[in-house]
Amino acid sequence: MASVTDYLDPKDLSRLANHQVLARRVVEGFCSGLHRSPHKGFSVEFKQHRAYTPGDEIRRLDWKVFAKTDRYYVREYEEETNLRCHLLLDASGSMAYGGEEENGLSKLAYGSRLAACFAYLTLRQTDSVGLTTFDSKVRSLVPPRGGASHTRQIIDLLGETKAGEDTDLGKVFHEIAPQLKKRGLVVIVSDCFGDIPSILKGLAHFNHAKHDVVIFQIWHRDELEFPFQSWTRFDCLEQEGIRHTVDPQHLREAYLENLREYREELVKGCHKHRVQLFPITTDEPYAEGLASFLAARGKAGMPVHL
């Protein structure tokens, strides 16, 4: 059984103590929380006046406005509700890459810690969080719940999750989207390796369901810089049997160009679908990355750039 401290380092948590997870878009819910709800119910925060129509509750009439205008208007209030956060963790084979060293931190491990931290923050602010792990299909699911004890379930699932095989993000997104009943925050922790049009279609599905989507794109430094010098055989982590023996120095420029194009396409697509794409590398302390992400999100309307 995984230990909570494996995934939640007290130092990291203290670093994030003052941050809150905020949904950028309005989400549904009825419990008391930090997030705007499209539902106008009784609330402490006044929203607007509306002309009285027969059937409105008399207690909602604003007598001051009547005194001024001799007309009947009712008061409408913002209804604060709880955030429903869905964590989607990519557990495909490519997430197993941790560098040339055998015991290097893999992207999956990094992503797991990131997800755990995010879940903790969400639960701490009395919001609910759920976790779904997937590769080419959904593997495991912890439905969104609130409460401090829910952390344990999240951690247990993270501990059991090992890197699988193929990735098919688009197909998985299509599969998951209908299962999310209420609008919420969808946090995707993945390297987004795959067919970009398919991925974007999947994201569009979330978008259509009015979810607030955030992608933490996990990179390893090697994937970004391709620092290899001597002849190397690259064995594919997702498909056994695919191997390429190359002189990396000869390919480097072409690979980096290809990588740039790939990232550009993904950024454009995310921007088009109003998905916030936040790249992060495994050599960057995840708490730092998460803190800067949350701080940026705290400023309303400021997207986080790649």
């Binding site: 084979g93 490519s94 997430m95 197993a96 890459y97 040339e100 992207k107 390297d191 390796f193 795959g194 390893h220 994937e223 290899f228 001597s230 002849w231 190397t232 055989r233 690259f234 064995d235 594919c236 982590l237 997702e238 498909q239 695919i242 390429h244 023996t245 190359v246 002189d247 000869h250 390919l251 072409a254 690979y255 290809n258 990588l259 790939y262």
Partner: peptide, 28 residues
């Protein structure tokens, strides 16, 4: 000698590598 003594790396971004090799193998 270099070709026979290569490092083995289990690589995740194969799709990025493959597209480069597919287009540039002969050139390389």
């Amino acid at each position: 000698f270099n070709r026979s003594r290569f490092k083995v790396i289990k690589w995740g971004a194969t799709h990025l590598l493959e597209s480069v090799l597919r287009k540039n193998r002969k050139q390389i």
